[in-house]
């Protein structure tokens, strides 16, 4: 496997008042291999969507670099920039908003096909649109081509949005809460379609969600990254992260999630936070941003020193002082990835 996207100490600030900035994303580093699935999870305001937008090239990082196949994307120009933008496609959360209500499914798919000269001539465009619909399991495709968004269900609309992302043959899909508006009973089939496309087309996927159970399902073979107040606090293989979480924040999150089994959910131990108040991004706590709430708070070091993301031999990475002290011997300097 080779590295498709690499984030190197990415930071993004937003100005809220004349002299006031917030760091929506702060010093985030991770990579996505070709054909890999990485899920970013976290609560609202943790910077997961901003991270996705920076990778898609919709926002410029305030600091740090993003590499696409080894090239810094800020140095890309003209043709190369366009190629990059095409190879990274976004699927948005709300298919009611992301599809133009006055365009038929065919119009929606034909626009990028024509614009980027992927197909020439009406017949070829129609054939390609049909094929795309079949790829996202909207069959028989001819039934859907001339429909308008209002004639489709939420799940079908989201499939059209995925098909549109595929028109330009991307190598990387960023799906931002792409199934959270879709009915529960059909969420899994939409995810399965994405998984099949990933397998068949070798797509890499960055899946942004707040639902850890969903992240575990989708990134079964991939990795999950957990963000808190702009920072990546833990990154690990998906099942490992859910079954043996290391960062106190990840542990708290997992312990708080109710389960669809009355026996399990009513006997589950909930880790108590030291404080329920979520700090404002305007006044981030010093040191580890989680320290005022952290159940494993250890005093001075946590209060004063921002813990860097430390990598361990088992392929996980954790930004937490106590964890890093305990696992001192497991630490590796460079991320060891199965290349």
């Amino acid at each position: 496997m080779t590295t498709l996207i690499q984030l190197d100490h990415i930071t993004r600030r937003f100005q809220v008042k004349r002299q006031q900035f917030i760091k929506a994303v702060d010093d985030v580093s991770f990579d996505v291999q070709e054909g890999e699935i990485v899920c970013l999870v976290g609560e609202s305001g943790c910077g997961k969507t901003t991270t996705g937008k920076m990778i898609a090239g919709l926002l410029k990082p305030s600091g740090g670099q993003i590499f696409y196949r080894g090239q810094d994307i800020t140095t890309l120009q003209g043709e190369a920039w366009e190629q990059y933008r095409l190879s990274v496609q976004l699927v948005h959360q709300d298919p009611y908003a992301s599809l133009n209500p006055t365009h038929s499914v065919f119009d929606t798919l034909a626009a990028p096909l024509r614009r980027h000269k992927i197909t020439v001539g009406e017949a070829a465009t129609r054939a390609q649109a049909r094929e795309l619909l079949e790829m996202v399991d909207l069959t028989p495709a001819t039934d859907f081509l001339d429909k308008y968004p209002h004639q489709l269900s939420g799940g079908q609309r989201q499939r059209v949005a995925v098909a549109r992302a595929l028109t330009v043959k991307p190598s990387f899909i960023i799906a931002d809460e792409a199934v959270s508006m879709v009915d529960v009973s059909i969420r899994i089939s939409l995810l399965n379609t994405l998984l099949r496309l990933k397998r068949e087309m070798g797509l890499a996927v960055l899946f942004i969600t707040h639902d850890l159970a969903l992240a575990k399902y989708f990134a079964w073979e991939g990795r999950i990254g957990v963000m808190y107040l702009g920072r990546l606090v833990e990154l690990a293989p998906a099942r490992q992260l859910v079954e043996a979480p290391q960062h106190p924040y990840t542990q708290v999150l997992l312990s708080a999630i109710p389960e669809a089994d009355p026996d399990v959910t009513r006997t589950k131990q909930h880790i108590q936070l030291r404080s329920m108040d979520v700090p404002s991004l305007l006044r981030l706590p010093s040191g580890c941003a989680f320290h005022p709430r952290c159940p494993c708070f250890e005093g001075e070091t946590c209060e004063q020193v921002v813990p860097p993301l430390a990598f361990f031999r088992d392929g996980s990475a954790v930004a937490c002082h106590p964890v890093q002290r305990e696992r001192k011997l497991d630490r590796v300097a460079e991320p060891t990835r199965a290349d």
């Binding site: 269900s153 799940g155 079908q156 009915d183 529960v184 009973s185 059909i186 969420r187 899994i188 089939s189 399965n192 850890l212 159970a213 969903l214 575990k216 399902y217 079964w220 859910v242 997992l254 999630i257 389960e259 669809a260 089994d261 399990v264």
Partner: peptide, 24 residues
Amino acid sequence: IGLINAVPTLTAHKDRVSSIPGSP
């Protein structure tokens, strides 16, 4: 039954989760 099976949980194995075909 279908609805319960369609919801991935933290503990469930991936293969135990399946969608209800069709749409509402």
